[in-house]
Design a protein around this nucleic acid. Structure first.
Lengths: 228, 228
DNA sequence: CGGCTTATTGACATACGTCAACTATTGTGG
DNA sequence: CCACAATAGTTGACGTATGTCAATAAGCCG
């Protein structure tokens, strides 16, 4: 494994508090995979065999009902661990995972991760924190879907990317628009229209580059409170 | 505390693997509250001061945007612990909590719960499992909201209540219809209409009593797969 | 520069929300 | 136990947000 990867792991929110030898043991049988964009890592319904960690690139968790309709539940990127709940509970994945960029993924065998959680209090504690964070992200998403319109959801998303106290910001969309639309619970067509609607709140978009020129107005439009 | 309460706690998924003395320590400063239906336990935005446990009754987690619109994210009943993520992370609540029946609630001081999590590996392990389960419930809800129509969501909910392999079932709605509508992401009016639409799939409702006379057809209509 | 994918725009369809009137259910005090 | 008020649920008419389909335009890559 590369040096920079080991560094990434050492700084990872789940693994950082593990004693070195425990971390080595955990990663002993881990696999590193190189996958082009668009690769399916696993499918909804399969048994959880690995805990996944993104070394590099970008992955989407994709939910499907009758395999015709699909939605993106969340994106993960460098340093993110995903699909821990299925691994912990030894249950089938509730979603599929697909790379949306060329990516390198670390696969940690599920049984070994569970074993380490039982041996190492530091790991189960860190896992609780990580799961708690993820739970809160999902709560935000549920509230978004139930309480806000499509343009408001887009605006909130842009604000969450900007992460500034100032009145203006330049940001870059990390996702393709089609994928972003699915993540936000709308169609690509409607995402376009949502962008138009936000123009009057100071949102200008040229390709991936987005300019927010009036953040206070945008916050108001989105009913964006930081904790929500 | 009543005997039956201690029994409930002993069988609780988070507390059951705790050694007796640790559980006693955890609960030492816990408060037991009796609240009529409709009481607000805490409000979105407040700091998380207590881990909550339902001894008896029923509680709704209510999310609001501009305090005008509200939605129900989840219900909890006897034996359920809720709001653990905010307690673990020492962050403000993302939602308010309101009793929807006369209820008795146990309040466990947040600091003490965190302390016990650090001392007792059994607790952090149990917490991970609980959080993982809750995460998966939310994932289901997100997929529901994004991929299914209102009648399908209602149908899926009814199927999840019926919990049978047979072709028919009688069930009783545990919630008031208005609350249920908000939990399912629709208006009360639309819930009524959703019930009508499900008649052709063998759903008959008289008050709280629901009869599912053709479960296979209903499953099909809802695109209901057990793992989703 | 072409050819592919991805994004936009417009016309149209539909599911869902809103409002208002009505009906049923529940709870309370005489 | 009834009568009545209050609350909760239903129904219809209507408006609106969002999805769908098709055509066009814009990026992206060989």
């Amino acid at each position: 494994m590369k040096d920079q990867d080991l560094q990434l792991l050492a700084g990872n929110s789940v693994l950082e508090h593990l004693p070195d030898n425990a971390r080595q043991y955990l990663l002993k049988e881990a696999l590193e995979l190189d996958m082009p964009s668009g690769t399916t890592l696993f499918r909804q319904g399969e048994d959880a065999r690995f805990l996944h960690l993104v070394l590099e690139g970008r992955v989407a968790l994709v939910g499907s009902s009758d395999s015709k309709d699909e939605t993106v539940v969340e994106f993960f990127h460098d340093g993110d661990v995903f699909i821990m709940p299925a691994v912990i509970l030894e249950l089938p994945y509730l979603m599929s995972a697909r790379t949306v960029e060329d990516s390198r993924i670390l696969l940690i065998p599920a049984a070994r991760f569970r074993e380490c959680m039982e041996q190492e209090p530091a790991l189960s504690l860190a896992a609780s924190h990580e799961l708690a964070r993820h739970w809160r992200l999902l709560i935000r998403q549920v509230k978004d879907l139930k309480l806000r319109s499509a343009p408001q959801r887009l605006g909130s998303y842009l604000l969450s990317l900007s992460d500034t106290d100032g009145d203006r910001a330049e940001i870059e969309l990390p996702e393709q628009r089609g994928m972003l639309a699915r993540r936000l619970g709308m169609t690509p067509e409607n995402l376009s229209r949502a962008f138009s609607r936000l123009q009057s709140s100071g949102v200008k978009s040229r390709g991936r580059q987005i300019e927010l020129s009036d953040i206070p107005t945008l916050r108001k439009f989105c009913a964006y409170d930081d904790l929500t």
